Each structure stands twice: as structure tokens, then as C-alpha cells.
Amino acid sequence: MPLTRSAGAALLALALASVAVPASASSTAAAADDVHYVALGDSYASGTGAGSYSDVACTRSRNAYPALWAGANDPASFSFAACGGAKIPDVVSSQVGELDQDTTLVSLSIGGNDSGFASTMLSCQYSTQSACERALATAGEYVVNELPGELDSLYATVRARAPHAEVVVVGYPHLYKEGGLCIGGLGSAKRTAVNRGSDLLNATIAGRAAAAGFTFVDGRPAFAGHEICTSDAWISGTNVHPTAEGHESGYLPAFGAAVSGN
């Protein structure tokens, strides 16, 4: 089924209906000595691009928001399973095994790689506007028609393995500032198209998270004003991933505000 204007609008409505989490909220809390925290997901959770890696193969960074939250809150246990490049099947096969009956908190960021993030960005960075838009349209069809069912299945697995956990699903930021010049970056039309693709992806994730009874953290307001092409970017223009500052000042406060009791 092709992506339709009405389908896109419906998904965006889901995103707008989700609870917004203020990026300025405090990320620290009293010692969480009864919290058993597991961090799942892809490179946006593992901290690719944030440096100070504890696991180079998975680009797990000590500067990533899961590690920062654990360091600030001292949970009873912390398992950092997120891995750069992960797709939904990888989370199922290699990450959810960290969950159990004792898990009380789960963070999860996934879906970008499944929708072809890397190849789409290459098309937009190095090909024409029309090629960029075709790549985004192909990704959009997957996001509308296939990703919802795959997320439903994953979320059901997470809930089954961690029945008592609070699950926080973390979305993706807009990558680019829209409008104006971006020296050495994408043209204005491409930047807008990429951000619209992010809107559709986030809307799908937000909708399925809500259906599963999970909390959705929107990465777009968390990084607003700090996208690529801004004067204080928290996303690297080289690898299009959050920097260490992006994790500390963007994702961490938003995640911390979403966790019960913060």
C-alpha cells in the first residue's frame, strides 16, 4: 500500500497527541537503589559519535544518556545493551535477553536503521534532490506499512520479558535546522525533506509506544535549536549523531523527566 497524505497526517496527529517532555527538566534524582535499568536500542542510544567508548564494536559511550543517567542515579543494576547499527531483529536476538522479572526500567530507541537511515542519508548527502526525495519516499512506505507491526511485536516481547518495568521509548531529533544557508551541509529543500521523514518515523514510534502503554520521549523538542547548521549544534554534521553534549543536554534531561519520580 503506498504512503498516502492521510496516512501521514494521521501518524503526525499521534505524535502531537503524545505527552511532551520538557528538555529542561532535571535529570538527576535521589539514589535509585531499587531500580534495575536496562538500556536497549541502536546508535542513538549507544552513543555513537559521543566518544569515550566502553565497547568500540557497539560504540557504547560513557557519554551516552543511559550511562549518564545510571551514573547520576546509582541504580541497583544497569545493563547497557544498546548497540550501534542495531535493527529490531538485533534487539530481539541480542539485547532483550538482559530483561527479566526484576527489571524495573527500560529505555529503548529503535526503528531508524530498519527504515534505511544510513542509505537514505547517503542519497540526500551525495545525490540530487529528486534522489533524496525518492529515498525518503521508499523509507516512508516502510515506516507506514511495515514498521508498526514490527514495533508491536518488539514491544510485546519487551513487556513479556520485563512485566513490571517502566518502558521509556526515546524518539529521534530533527537533524537539521531548516531555512537559510548551511555552509558545507545540505541545501534547504533537502534539510526540510529529511526532517519531514523524521516526523513520520517519530509519529509511528509514538503511536505504537502509546498502544503498548509505554512512555514516549520526543527527541525533537529536546534538541530544538541545536540541530546541524545551528551555531550550537548538538548533532555532528559528520556522522549525523548526537554529540556528547547532545546526550548530556538534550537526551538526558528529557529521559530523566520521563522516568517516574523525576
Results as ranks from 00 to 15, higher is better:
G49A: 11
G49Y: 11
A50V: 08
G51H: 11
Y53K: 06
D55S: 12
V56I: 13
V56K: 14
A57S: 15
S61T: 06
G71P: 05
D74W: 03
D74N: 12
A76N: 03
F78Q: 02
S79W: 00
A81S: 14
A81E: 15
A82F: 11
C83V: 05
G84W: 02
G84F: 09
G85P: 06
G85I: 01
A86V: 05
A86I: 04
I88H: 08
I88N: 04
V91R: 00
V91A: 12
S93M: 05
S94C: 04
S94T: 09
Q95V: 09
G97H: 00
D102E: 12
D102N: 13
T103V: 13
L105K: 02
L105M: 07
L108D: 04
I110H: 05
S115Y: 06
F117S: 12
F117W: 14
F117T: 05
A118K: 05
A118N: 12
S119H: 03
M121G: 13
M121L: 15
C124S: 07
T128F: 02
T128Q: 03
A131N: 07
R134V: 14
A135N: 02
A135K: 01
A137D: 10
A139N: 04
A139F: 02
G140Y: 03
G140I: 03
V144Y: 07
N145Q: 11
N145C: 08
N145I: 08
L147N: 03
P148N: 09
G149Y: 00
L151I: 10
L151C: 08
L151Y: 04
D152M: 04
S153F: 04
L154K: 01
Y155I: 12
A156F: 04
A156P: 00
A156R: 11
